[in-house]
Write a protein that binds this DNA or RNA. Structure first.
Length: 900
DNA sequence: CGTAACTGCAA
DNA sequence: TATTGCAGTTACG
């Protein structure tokens, strides 16, 4: 049986942390609640993360303790708790009572002593003890079974200290931590220590003498004369300080563990309190519990903490050469780099970790190397060598980092990041640490934790030298060892073709697109900025005038109040937090008030300005005058690529005003864009997968697919199809691809559900094999637990087994849509590889620079236009052989607007 | 401060 | 109660 676990929380310390970490929240009655809120969220997180069987919260009481009696100045000069905080203590205790969490309090003892005593008691009972506090003093209680969790910046993350981590961070044992404080003193407790001795000196002394007692007896052995004098002059202080700093672990109190057993909260009381404090998010967390899964935390027991692998530092060219010899003897080289992240085309490398076998890691602090170009030259030989198989986790980064130094990693043989994505594309992250835990039972340093989050988040290069070395080395070590495990899994799931023939080669294409970037006309963008700014301010003025009040138009809440309360327009729809003010609603109100068209126009312009004009202006690379978006290969569940910073896959096109923006994306001097998009790729894929004769026939005859569908649905000849019939049919075709529902189609076409159902039934009657496909794929998904694309890309669909109708229906639509959307993604990925390879092989200068799901954009020198057009057309249309021909439409222009 | 909600842009 | 994404803004707790 697993060990029982107890969580002991330092109440005063934690509520303090919460109070200062959060901005003040005040309820309508003027009650401050940020400390309570922060405390409760931290508490809940710890309970969820660690699933303790026992839990208690310790508090200081007002009564003086033995420390005050012994040392009158104890904690003197400490500022009084502000009333905004002190008024939260009693309410917090009420919350704890409602949670049925025991409060540990005793007059004359500080929370620390209560915690210490309880911790040691539980340790003797063989329990695992977790102490949660914001105060480092508790570190003296650490042992093999006692861990201390200390809050970091903010309230969302905790540092876990066990004896190993304590030694790593402070180089002292838990007991020496007391001596450390005795020597350093502590301002906040007014513990004197030795004046002039700080952390550095104290650690040095403890390394030499072990304890303060030993130090006092052997002061003559202190080498520095000044220091010796200081220590000798403060012996009394040291002794007193140590006594004050020592947490008492044997308070004479009776401990009834039963009191500390975790119990169900008293929900009535709890919700009453939460309502009083206006903790609406917590209320919903505690009420919507029906049907929620009960997630038993499995805990981290049995995990090997990595610290024993062999890490070596490469500090000279000679050492690098020696390492390279090892590489030559090995089949694989795992690599991970960190760069300055200044500029994609002139970037400098900060550090490199490399592994040529499973146990050793070599780390090179690039900043410290004297002859950088010699280092790069040597690396180039290895990285461009066809014999050495390169391994990475997100190797696209390395491809990009080495590009400015004319190093092309030729032989990328494995990327664990992409491997795990194919194994399960639905995961929200694929970090090395987690993979290490799952596949290797190895636990390495947490990157997120090291970097922190939010505003104070660091970049990798800003880490302490030691932290960065450790992080990179461990990640590379784990990456190296992951390869056989992930390979095995890819084999098992028959993903090898997709992996080696598509995804891995694609990485290089994406890296090349990122490095190439796309040129933007800055002047045009700046002009647009001014133009839009004027329009927005004019519209704002009009809106204020028509509303008779100034308010924040961007706030749906305030806008709703103005429209529906003040102007008393009819609210059409509401959201879960208030009135809906979206474009669909406003359109219906357009004629009801002059203000509505102004607001719609404001929304349009404000969106274009903030997201596209300002957004793009802020991200232009000053050196290249281009935009270098990131193309991510592991984000979507269907296999599509995604684009960020900026997202270049959602630049406006449907409305003319927005479409104008495409004019700012220009081909460079002497070049043009060739824009090629697949014609109806998803419906062609559907025709192929379903084998539907009717649909295949439509494509074979080269008919307009929506017109053909309209003629089928409405039972008229093709030449009799009106434009409104065609656009309805188009919506039906969309619906089919998305996994149709009568409700959804009705909503989209603004027709009744019954009418929508008629369209769908009629469609499925005419395209009977499509109907069969839809039914079969859902059955298959239920049976196997997943569906696949043409290239066997897999997506698991647990939703199909849900008892909840909505969730199950969602699963069914995903089952229908994923093979279609995903196979189209498979196809264009092959096309990208084809185009990229052919351009390279033919020695052409044209470069693939963008992909927008069914569209490729190639920046092409004028004298290559014809040849490149042919390559693109071939590359796309021959990407895969289907029952129906793939078709690509090409056009060209000086900018993206013209080329579309 | 960290996150959720709303809105709107693309294929 | 139509698929897949990203981002700007506001508001909550």
């Amino acid at each position: 049986m697993a060990k029982d676990r107890i969580v002991i929380i330092d109440g005063n310390s934690l509520v303090n942390r919460a109070f200062y970490a959060l901005p003040p929240f005040v309820t309508k009655d003027g009650q401050y609640t940020n400390g309570i809120y922060g405390f409760v969220t931290m508490l809940l997180k710890v309970m969820e993360d660690y699933q303790p069987q026992y839990i208690g919260v310790a508090f200081d009481l007002k009564a003086p303790t033995f420390r005050h009696k012994e040392y009158g100045d104890y904690k003197a000069g400490r500022k009084k708790m502000p009333s905004e905080l002190s008024q939260q203590i009693q309410p917090l205790k009420e919350v704890l009572d409602a949670l049925n969490i025991f409060r540990i309090e005793a007059e004359g003892y500080e929370a620390d002593d209560l915690i210490g005593t309880l911790a040691k008691h539980c340790e003797r009972e063989g329990m695992e003890v977790l102490i949660v506090t914001g105060d480092k003093d508790a570190l003296q209680l650490v042992s093999q079974q006692v861990k201390v969790l200390i809050t970091r910046k903010g309230i969302s993350s905790l540092d876990i200290y066990d004896d190993v981590k304590l030694m790593e961070d402070y180089e002292v044992t838990p007991l020496q931590f007391i001596d450390l404080k005795a020597l350093m003193g502590d301002k906040s407790d007014n513990i004197p220590g030795v004046p002039g001795v700080g952390e550095k000196t104290a650690i040095k002394l403890l390394k030499q003498f072990g304890t303060t007692e030993n130090l006092i007896q052997h002061t003559d052995e202190i080498s520095a004369a000044k220091l010796k004098e200081k220590v000798e002059g403060n012996i009394e202080n040291i002794i007193l300080s140590k006594r004050l700093a020592t947490i008492i672990t044997d308070i004479p109190v009776e401990i009834k563990l039963d009191d500390l057993k975790k119990e169900e909260p008293n929900y009535d009381e709890l919700l009453t309190l939460f309502r009083r404090f206006e903790f609406n998010s917590l209320i919903s967390r505690f009420t919507k519990n029906e049907g929620a899964e009960t997630d038993e935390g499995e805990g981290n027991t049995g995990l090997e903490t990595v610290s024993s692998d062999q890490f070596y530092e490469i500090g000279s060219i000679e050492e690098l050469k020696t390492f390279i010899k090892k590489v030559r003897e090995s089949e694989y080289l795992a690599i991970k780099t960190v760069s300055e992240e200044k500029n994609i085309t002139t970037d400098e490398i900060v550090a490199i970790a490399m592994a040529a076998d499973a146990n050793e890691v070599y780390y090179l602090d690039f900043r410290m190397m004297d002859d950088k170009s010699a280092v790069l030259q040597l690396l180039k030989e290895v990285l461009e060598d066809d014999e050495t198989k390169i391994i990475g986790h997100d190797i696209k980064k390395e491809l990009v980092h080495f590009a400015p130094h004319q190093i092309e990693i030729r032989n990328v043989s494995f990327d664990t990041f992409i491997g795990e994505y194919l194994i399960d594309p639905a995961k929200s992250s694929y970090n090395v640490k987690e993979l290490g835990v799952v596949y290797l039972n190895k636990n390495i340093v947490d990157e997120e934790e090291l970097l922190g989050k939010g505003k104070s988040r660091k970049t990798l290069k800003e880490l302490e030298k030691e932290d960065l070395r450790k992080l990179l080395s461990q990640q590379v070590n784990v990456t190296f060892n992951l390869v056989p495990r992930i390979k095995e899994k890819l084999h098992e799931l028959e993903l090898e073709d997709l992996y080696y023939k598509v995804e891995l080669p694609l990485t290089e294409v994406l890296a090349s697109m990122e490095v190439a970037g796309i040129k933007v006309d800055q002047h045009m963008l700046k002009d647009l900025e001014i133009q839009f700014r004027d329009m927005v301010s004019q519209l704002t003025e009009d809106i204020y005038r028509l509303a008779g009040v100034e308010f924040n138009i961007n706030s749906p809440k305030q806008l709703g109040e103005v429209l529906f309360d003040k102007l008393e327009l009819p609210p059409i729809k509401k959201t879960k937090t208030g009135y809906s003010t979206n474009a669909e609603v406003l359109e219906k109100l357009r004629e009801k008030h002059e203000i509505i068209p102004k607001i719609l126009e404001y929304r349009t312009i404000a969106k274009l300005k903030s997201t596209y004009v300002d957004g793009l202006l802020g991200i232009i690379n000053p050196v290249t005058e281009r935009i270098h978006s990131s193309f991510n290969q592991t984000v979507t569940t269907t296999g599509r690529i995604s684009s960020t910073e900026p997202n270049l896959q959602n630049i406006p096109v449907r409305l003319e005003l927005g479409r104008q923006l495409r004019k700012v994306f220009v081909a460079k001097e002497g070049h043009k864009f060739i824009d090629a998009d697949y014609s109806q790729i998803e419906l062609r894929v559907l025709a192929h997968i379903s084998g539907d004769e009717n649909l295949l026939d439509a494509f074979e005859k080269g008919q307009d697919i929506h017109t053909r569908t309209a003629s089928e649905i409405f039972g008229v000849e093709v030449h009799e199809v009106t434009s409104s019939m065609r656009s309805s049919a188009k919506a039906v075709n969309f619906g089919i691809v998305y996994g149709i529902s009568d409700f959804g189609l009705g909503e989209n076409l603004k027709i009744s559900r019954a009418q929508a159902k008629k369209y769908i039934d009629r469609y499925l009657e005419k395209y009977s094999s499509v109907k069969a496909y839809m039914e079969n794929i859902v059955q298959e998904g239920k049976h196997k637990g997943y569906v696949v694309t043409l290239l066997n890309r897999r997506r698991y669909l647990p939703e199909l087994l849900s008892k909840n109708f909505n969730i199950r229906s969602f699963g069914e639509r995903m089952a229908m849509n994923t093979p279609i959307q995903g196979s189209a993604a498979d196809i264009i990925k092959i096309a990208m590889i084809n185009v990229h390879r052919m351009l390279k092989e033919e020695g052409l200068k044209a470069k693939l620079i963008l992909q927008v799901h069914d569209e490729l954009i190639v920046e092409t020198p004028l004298d290559e236009m014809e040849k490149v057009s042919q390559i693109i057309e071939m590359g796309m249309e021959n990407a895969m052989k289907l029952k129906v021909q793939l078709k690509a439409d090409l056009s060209q222009g000086d900018n993206w607007y013209e080329a579309k």
